[in-house]
């Protein structure tokens, strides 16, 4: 059995990884909560954001963290335009169409990346890429700690927006009753686009936190999107607190499961919890009963 000097670093590692998962899942759950669509293009959008961070660093020397004020609004704008100009128009108001449109978008984005960047795996080097902080017996990579804090901050900001602003109230109103919201004078199309934009902005932040210790290639999003979907269902579809807690939980379970059972078998823990939640709390940990 492993001692504290191994289990503790594994736990911290799970929390820091889980925070990034949560950030990716937050965007997904917002898009689901309001638009009621499963965004298959989420992984591809993460890939776009990672390439943006990469290009900013390589071409203009912009540090990934300093790229936040560029990439986050950029991804927001991309999401807003995509929703208004492509998804909304092509879907003709049908959910099953939206599903296919996002799937199509993911294929287009991935193949565009393949044409532009080739299949090459790209990484960036920063002064802190390999820097670590010692917490007890654990060496935690500095970028992972920053990602952890950043993810919690982003989740807090997102929750505050939804809970306290007019936009948040509009989002909640549209999520609950679209037609009623429209009758109350809310511009539903605008709220849809804002929600999609914010969802992708979360990915922009995730990309800035992720790239210092990770890589980007045209397929990179697929590694995260399945786990993000799992978190969204686990936490409760449309629940921000659920996405945050679900992300951290999945991160820890994956980490400890991997440590004890091995990397391949360790994934069993994630899906074991997933099945238990579906059996005994199908609305998810924080989801409201329909």
């Amino acid at each position: 059995m492993f001692g504290f000097d191994i289990l503790f670093p594994s736990l911290l590692n799970g929390l820091t990884t889980g925070a990034v998962y949560a950030l990716i899942a937050l965007g997904l759950t917002l898009i689901y909560g309001v638009l009621h669509i499963i965004n298959f293009a989420h992984g591809a959008a993460l890939m776009v954001a990672l390439y943006a961070v990469y290009l900013l660093k390589v071409n203009w020397g912009v540090d990934p963290y300093l790229a936040l004020p560029i990439v986050v609004p950029g991804m927001f704008a991309l999401g807003y335009v995509l929703q208004r100009a492509v998804i909304n128009r092509a879907s003709h108001g049908k959910d099953e169409n939206i599903l296919l449109v996002t799937l199509g978008l993911s294929i287009v984005l991935e193949n565009l990346a393949l044409i532009v960047f080739k299949s090459d795996t790209r990484t960036i080097e920063t002064a802190y890429t390999l820097a670590t902080v010692q917490i007890g017996p654990a060496f935690i990579a500095v970028p992972k700690l920053v990602a952890f804090a950043g993810a919690l901050l982003c989740a807090g900001v997102l929750m505050a927006i939804v809970a306290r602003t007019d936009l948040g109230r509009a989002i909640r109103a549209v999520a609950r009753e679209k037609h009623g919201a429209r009758l109350m004078g809310i511009d539903v199309d605008h709220v849809y686009a804002m929600s999609f934009g914010i969802g992708l902005a979360c990915l922009g932040a995730a990309a800035c936190f992720l790239l210092p210790t990770y890589y980007v290639n045209p397929q990179v999003g697929s590694g995260f999107v399945l786990v993000a979907f799992t978190i969204v269902v686990l936490g409760g579809m449309g629940s921000f607190a659920g996405a945050l807690v679900g992300g951290l939980l999945i991160g820890v379970v994956e980490s400890l499961g991997g440590l004890v059972l091995g990397e391949s078998l360790g994934q069993i823990g994630i899906f074991g919890i997933f099945i238990l939640v579906l059996l005994f709390r199908p609305q998810g940990l924080f989801g409201a009963r329909a």
């Binding site: 670093p9 990884t17 995260f224 990397e263």
Partner: peptide, 8 residues
């Protein structure tokens, strides 16, 4: 996605 466990 993460090799920390293996390295631990």
């Amino acid at each position: 996605r993460d090799f920390n466990n293996i390295v631990l």
